[in-house]
Design a protein around this nucleic acid. Sequence first.
DNA 1: AGGCGCTTGTGAAGACGTGCACAAATCGCG
DNA 2: CGCGATTTGTGCACGTCTTCACAAGCGCCT
Lengths: 245, 245
Amino acid sequence: MSQHRHPGAPGRAGAVPALPDLPEATVARLPEYLRALHNLADSGHETVSSEGLSAAAGVNSAKLRKDLSHLGSYGTRGVGYDVALLIEQIEYVLGLTQRRAVALVGVGNLGHALAGYDGFASRGFRIAALLDADPSRVGEEINGLVVRHVDELPVIAVQESIAIGVIATPAAAAQRVADQLVAVGVTSILNFAPCVLSVPEGVDVRKVDLAIELQILSFHEHRKASLTALPGGLAATETQEAIGT
Amino acid sequence: MSQHRHPGAPGRAGAVPALPDLPEATVARLPEYLRALHNLADSGHETVSSEGLSAAAGVNSAKLRKDLSHLGSYGTRGVGYDVALLIEQIEYVLGLTQRRAVALVGVGNLGHALAGYDGFASRGFRIAALLDADPSRVGEEINGLVVRHVDELPVIAVQESIAIGVIATPAAAAQRVADQLVAVGVTSILNFAPCVLSVPEGVDVRKVDLAIELQILSFHEHRKASLTALPGGLAATETQEAIGT
DNA sequence: AGGCGCTTGTGAAGACGTGCACAAATCGCG
DNA sequence: CGCGATTTGTGCACGTCTTCACAAGCGCCT
Ligand SMILES: NC(=O)c1ccc[n+]([C@@H]2O[C@H](COP(=O)([O-])OP(=O)(O)OC[C@H]3O[C@@H](n4cnc5c(N)ncnc54)[C@H](O)[C@@H]3O)[C@@H](O)[C@H]2O)c1
Ligand SMILES: NC(=O)c1ccc[n+]([C@@H]2O[C@H](COP(=O)([O-])OP(=O)(O)OC[C@H]3O[C@@H](n4cnc5c(N)ncnc54)[C@H](O)[C@@H]3O)[C@@H](O)[C@H]2O)c1
């Protein structure tokens, strides 16, 4: 390590938050570690080794240690990591110490499922608004929340301090919705519609596309099939990877 | 280009499929290109330049060209790519020339939405079975398919030639379901439950975790906030979250 | 106190992915 | 037929990510 005395500890720190800028790949894995840590905590573990945690999270242990070292984390050599402390650290870095408000736009087939999902609440988020453009859906109550018209977004965004927008509308409407979200100051969007969104710099978009996942799986199926079909004669039967360098 | 005369053309090919082993990153982008190409085809375009297609898919044009070059694709210098041909090529490589059968296990909140989703059919897949362990759900009809008991999986897998399993059960049941899927010969799994699955070598698992996506967005929100707060003078105006241990 | 075994944190090397920039190829037109 | 405009395919350099391997640190036991 080189240039930070305070690793960004949540504890005292009247000083700077000093968010180290983590590698993107690391950020994507922190939530996995966090989930694994919560499981460990629930089952009574107080400490865990990098080996144990990496197994629970399904990654290589060296990678885990490097990831944690990036956030200046506290492990104890010969012992491992303090589970509770590590949870605190990761939640701090991920910005989960404040419960962020999510607006869900498009309460159709998928939107209903999302609205009824308890994984939001348990993982640091709060569904603060359900919005739809279809007047016949407005007014419907789901899980204690009333669906409101998407045009009310400007008011709601302020009232509820919306931090994240989730788009579950048809693809044709997604760009328009994204524009509306951006217009009210939302800078993070999760998009379920199968289309590319264009947004101004500074706005983060992540997408989830079911069909893409399936098509990637399909590719590997295809490849596996063509491999087992071919190598009758001479080729590597199985894990003959790592041939010459 | 060096060593392939046939780029793996789908048309005739009594010969070898000759699947080039594509970089994983490329495989992950091909479905994006495919979707963009279908859009272009629908709006009457017969050819498209790498610039145009890359814009539609939201990537850098050099990256697109390199990706396509990996599958030995046919572009025409000075003109661009033939849309229909490229669709054929990509669908061939992704193994979408046969419509793969998907078994959906866990017809709850999320499972219902997935079962009713038309994006499966339109992107190369067929929901061949809906399975659940809850007797009170068995028999229910969704979108023309009847929910059957998960114990019938062995029979159904053979009858329907299940290629891909989708897990939409609670996390606690996911590993068990995965084992059952593997036992009947499924080698590709898409997992919506927030947990790590352990499967034998040769089985591919992809996971979709909503909370992880939100937490990644949360991190960037946090970072953005701490950046705009800091560089003014010196102090962190906000981010006073997480007080004492 | 000292030594021993265990585990972290990290340097270094290699694999992988990205994007620039340009030569090679093709088309259309005069 | 030749030329210029255009666009592909790719060599190359750079950055990011992964993994190995090991020194440094820590706690426990004698
Ligand atoms: N259903 C799934 O399992 C599933 C899976 C993956 C992706 N998706 C994608 O998610 C999106 C939604 O899918 P769905 O099955 O829920 O569709 P849906 O048609 O059931 O629901 C779409 C909802 O969006 C609303 N809407 C339309 N335009 C709007 C606008 N401008 N502002 C606000 N709301 C608007 C509609 O009124 C409707 O309630 C689609 O893009 C789909 O491709 C769905
Ligand atoms: N609902 C969402 O929007 C959402 C979003 C992201 C992830 N998820 C995840 O998807 C999974 C399903 O979520 P949900 O909201 O649909 O839950 P749910 O409880 O509504 O549905 C789960 C279904 O799985 C069935 N099931 C349980 N054990 C089974 C077994 N061994 N074999 C077959 N079926 C079994 C149950 O009978 C039930 O019908 C969960 O792991 C959840 O974390 C849900």
